[in-house]
Amino acid sequence: MFWRRREPEPPPPSDEPADTPSDEPVVVPPTTVARPRREAAGMGLRARPSGLGSRLRSILGAGTPATDATWDEVEETLIAGDVGAATTLEVVDAARQRMEREGGRTGEDARRALATELRDRLAASGSGVFELGPAPSVILVVGVNGTGKTTTIAKLAHRLKGQGRSLALAAGDTFRAAAVEQLRIWGEEIGVPVVAQRTGADPGAVAFDAVAAAESRNLDAVLVDTAGRLQNKQQLMDELAKIRRVIERRLPGQPRHVLLVLDATTGQNGLVQAEAFSREVGITGIVLTKLDGTAKGGVALAVADRLGVPILFAGVGEELDALAPFEPEAFVEWLFAE
């Protein structure tokens, strides 16, 4: 697997004020009974062997010369991983040329050329390091419906809190039924305040409130949730651009990050999504979710390659700690895992 196992993190600092100021529309209702937990299958999945490119090794047998047929099989593997026909053809062509330039001809040479080619393309999309800027950093989370934006915010909040950061969440999905409640429940579980208004409220206003609260209370970061929207609905994309403008106007230089949440099971439409969100709100990084199944998320490679936007995190399970920093090298191995 290509994500780093989460390092044991220090316990959250105790000086974090748990209560919330009364002048903000923040509500964290107590729940009496815990939600049922899924059995820990997710953990088991994460431990599944990746094969470390075993499939690639079997295609490109070390000593035997790389033939057209072997390259065809490489091509097929990439396409099966949702990398997309166009990007795949480019990558395979470039890898072949690289191999020939370097005078290689065996399967091992081909494997090296291909790995280098893929790594270079991922590296060219910039640093994959997620850092907060001067407080407060605003992180806007966007994407189409059902990719896992709210869950990703919860995981990211959990992660930042574990690093001793102070933060707030903004319930900016005021459209979907119970999305606000969903974020509130997470906020309560993680122990971070949630700025929320009622369902149907103006998401820009929610974002404004959250940024103001973060500023007045000197928080390190505020994570702004947004409603899922299909990228071809211009009116909804305009709304998102407005949310961004509201944040920018309140705090110049923000949002520090605009994260596009991309579902790993998504096919070639992922590229269209990334292009549209990038055009409307300028994404700075990608979170690739639901990578605990068998989907390879290869479209993220195409996105990183075409748009030059780095993949920052991988969502690898249902638990709060199932968000791992993205590692290009391991991702390439993952693409070729059985």
Binding site: V33, R35, A177, A178, I185, W186
Partner: peptide, 24 residues
Amino acid sequence: PAAVDQLVQLGDQIGAEVHTRPVG
């Protein structure tokens, strides 16, 4: 989280009865 709330709210919207059980 809140998946049950979501269905209850949708049920309200469309006027359909929703069966739920307590959390847990």
